[in-house]
Design a protein around this nucleic acid. Sequence first.
DNA 1: GTCTATAGAGCGATAGAC
DNA 2: GTCTATCGCTCTATAGAC
Lengths: 195, 195
Amino acid sequence: MARKTGSHSEITGPRIRDAALRLFARYGFAAVSMRQIAAEVGVQAGALYLYTPDKETLLFDLLKSHMDELLAAWEAEPKDEDPLTRLERFVRFHIRFNLERPDAVFLSYMELRNLGPDNFRRIESLRRAYEDELETILRDGVRQGLLSIPDTKIATLAIIAMLTGVTTWYREGGRLSRDRVGDIYWDMVRKAVSA
Amino acid sequence: MARKTGSHSEITGPRIRDAALRLFARYGFAAVSMRQIAAEVGVQAGALYLYTPDKETLLFDLLKSHMDELLAAWEAEPKDEDPLTRLERFVRFHIRFNLERPDAVFLSYMELRNLGPDNFRRIESLRRAYEDELETILRDGVRQGLLSIPDTKIATLAIIAMLTGVTTWYREGGRLSRDRVGDIYWDMVRKAVSA
DNA sequence: GTCTATAGAGCGATAGAC
DNA sequence: GTCTATCGCTCTATAGAC
């Protein structure tokens, strides 16, 4: 392998990102210092700058990765023809994906304000692309007479807000399994938009 | 009136709170300095401490006032007998109230983590009291056979998350009036929980 | 690749003059 | 009631040793 003793570069990067994600989500971007992140990883603050040019870029990379993974994971889902089946798949997918990454979800719509204008726009456009996926389903459903929705744009935002809210109260090992939560939300969403 | 020249105490307090609310909502509690707040008001930083013992208490007072006003405003609404009518009133009330205070709404569930344990619990218990108002309506509706809800606790949280989401996208003077937004959300909520 | 040390700046909060 | 000045501390980011 011929690696230098004491060199951990291959794992330090991901560990910094993990620590930053957890700390930013818990205490807020501005409230977390680079020293805290470094301490969590077990290095000195200066060492962080081998992996990120500055603190804001570290945040941006976390948000960008999250949005990329979200879009890629949805892209990898089966493409059902029927809008109702596809809507059900979206509901269950969104809940499942977000429950697996509560910290990243929280960051993604709480700490956008800490990005500069350019970085902000890049994340926003990814978020809009994801919303468009849902709106397309709703529009198809309306066109085929399967759904009745006064305003598909608002319905899109309303459904996503409702589903994402799961991350604020769901606790592992609590009263309900993830699947059961999916059932309950799907029941409400289905009825909310049904013809 | 015999007031001292240069004394503005009666208006400085509210102005500090207004500025703090706006700045905290925009940039985050930790990212805003007492000097920034003071500059916005037009006083020096030291003068703020005549109105608040410290920065956290300033945040707490903003959140506490918001929750008190929310509960008082709901309390002042007419008490409809019919659960469905009462649910419609809740939906329209919640949207209207929150759209009038987007900054306070944002603070109320973004900056709770900056409170100490005691202050945190006090705000949380007010929030739970508000949620209980909605859950009681849903339970009554189910008991009377007017509503069909797999889990009233989750339905409560889902509805509130959906309605509160309005504040993230609504823009004054945009495509839709507030009343129209109320119509659209009521349509979705009604169908989501109907028997 | 990581460390120590530090620059340059800003922070919350307080003291004392007016 | 407000100001000026300041204490003691922490911050991001960088320089240079190893």
